[in-house]
Design a protein around this nucleic acid. Sequence first.
DNA 1: TATTGTTATACTCTATAACTATA
DNA 2: TATAGTTATAGAGTATAACAATA
Lengths: 188, 188
Amino acid sequence: MADGSTHRRRLDDPVAAERDIAARLDRAGLEVDYDALSVVSNVYRAATAIRRHMERTVLAAERLSWTAFVALWVLWVWDGMESRHLAVEAGVSKGTLTGVLDTLERRGLVRRRRQEDDRRLVTVTLTADGDALITRVYPAFNAEETRLTGSVAAEHRAVVAAGLRDLVRGVDVAAEPPLTRPGAGTDG
Amino acid sequence: MADGSTHRRRLDDPVAAERDIAARLDRAGLEVDYDALSVVSNVYRAATAIRRHMERTVLAAERLSWTAFVALWVLWVWDGMESRHLAVEAGVSKGTLTGVLDTLERRGLVRRRRQEDDRRLVTVTLTADGDALITRVYPAFNAEETRLTGSVAAEHRAVVAAGLRDLVRGVDVAAEPPLTRPGAGTDG
DNA sequence: TATTGTTATACTCTATAACTATA
DNA sequence: TATAGTTATAGAGTATAACAATA
């Protein structure tokens, strides 16, 4: 096994790292879809890096978690939303959303209202303070988005964005009831 | 404000959703970098969807978290690694890694050894069971990666992966400490 | 019966920081 | 002094499940 500094040198170089991965898989005699491997691992790395960066810079200054920011942003764009849809859109469970909304409501940034026509439902809207906050913070957030994506070739950005949209759609499809895979759906 | 079903219909359609976003930003008079917005939001959605899908399918069957799987994978590819490098590679803090390794060691999948030449360091390697597990699980994991990326046009996959690599590099650059701080990469 | 939102439990991961043992 | 790893705390987020109110 190589020493630590050698690992560091190779791991810091994505190309060398992928060569090591290919060599290891070859040694194990495994046939692998490298493009799929590469897309998935880089999507995950990129997302983690972005979230951490935003939480340490733009969002830390406003004491907002990533999820709280996304919720405010969604409410701002669509001028309020039913709680059940907001959970889906923000990518959190309904249990998590309850906690996030408790916090945002306590800070006076959002408001919950029971719906009259179906009293099981709750509609969430931004308060004036919440609206002011997102209007103030989003330009800074977007400026960071621009900086972070600045290293991606301009002519590739649309392809990357479109490819990721397709990927999300593909995961949704893959997550559907496993009609084609008998015996794979009995987990919980 | 629109009713819930209208929201659902529009949010399920990424193109309509992006039109709504553009309209809202325009209404607010904000100038926005749409490509950057689109890349960042789709990276995050894709990563969340992928992680959840894997944890519910391939990884659930082996009772592995995403992080535990990544750690095993890294140790397998590089034939063991110093703990400090493993933390970086798996994308977790050293505190989190301690807990993950405790679990994996308890299950007999990895082994920790204090280094002789520098007794502050710990080297982690896979046990025979750990090696067998990753050799068994990775083909299934990669098959899912293939399924999930199947909806991305084949000729775009390499561009997406390369673009994301560039993005990660860009975030690292953006996260670099100000020049006034003499060189230290620390992790609390 | 089914759905929505809330509450609760247990677990994972994060940031931060103190602590140890080494260097 | 600095570094590596462990431990501890507080706070998000997750899955899961129970629950009340409502449909």
